[in-house]
Design a protein around this nucleic acid. Structure first.
Lengths: 125, 125
DNA sequence: GCTCTAATTTGACATATGTCTAAGCAGAGC
DNA sequence: GCTCTGCTTAGACATATGTCAAATTAGAGC
């Protein structure tokens, strides 16, 4: 299955761009957004995300990531899985190695949710 | 041992504005930021934050908040405490009621961390 | 002082989470 | 086919988390 381009949820709807502070999130929006923040609510996963995002070519091999922590490979694998299931990153196997890259749109969306204003053009004033 | 040396980092330093994707977060920065994202990584707390931010006058009484959920008062109180301890909101008692308001700077900072670019003027490039 | 309401704290509980070890799977190279 | 390396899965375990009921604290009004 290709999780690569699946929107997962109707992103274009309510929780897409309107910032938190503009109108109250309803339960459904919150249920959809919270897991994303939860996924980055762990120091290891935050660093993983950052490492992947900053890595040369926009993608990183698991071996690069594992060596940056004092954690076992299964633990890193677990965190990568959490990030991937949240839709924040995606991956592909190439030969022996598995590469991960971030999904910039999701990150951008979260940024917009927290941002003070700017509905990213959805609502034209 | 090499994981973290300082529990709290000076916010004005690295983790202040530079987005995730610009340079890898170090362990200390991640340890400082992750709890903030974790705090909003819960649907109830996300909605609480949004409700408070959107409320008239920029602040909301606990009674207003409690009535928006099908949860007991202690549970709401717990979530508010988590948000407050994370620094996302603040509160004050006025007579019988307790009012909460958000700390916009913290929210803005998180937004900047996730944002694609814009170091908020830190590095001119 | 008494009581009423608003909110928090305490304690309990089931569930979720982060980590590890051990085992399994997938290619590469012999 | 065998083995080696890279990565994931499975299972176990201690700790953290979300929720509630009961008890407690804080003011307001009588």
């Amino acid at each position: 299955m290709s999780k690569q381009e699946l929107p997962v949820v109707d992103v274009s709807e309510g929780a897409c761009c309107a910032p938190l502070a503009r109108e109250p999130l309803n339960a459904a929006e919150a249920d959809e957004l919270a897991p994303l923040f939860k996924a980055i609510g762990d120091p290891v996963r935050l660093r993983l995300l950052s490492l992947i995002a900053c890595h040369d070519g926009g993608e990183a091999c698991v071996c690069d990531l594992t060596s940056a922590f004092e954690l076992t490979a299964p633990t890193i694998s677990h965190h990568l899985k959490v990030l991937k299931q949240a839709g924040l990153i995606d991956s592909e196997r190439r030969g022996t190695w598995v590469y991960y890259w971030i999904n910039p749109q999701v990150l951008q969306r979260l940024s917009a949710i927290l941002g003070p204003r700017q509905a990213t053009g959805l609502v034209p004033a």
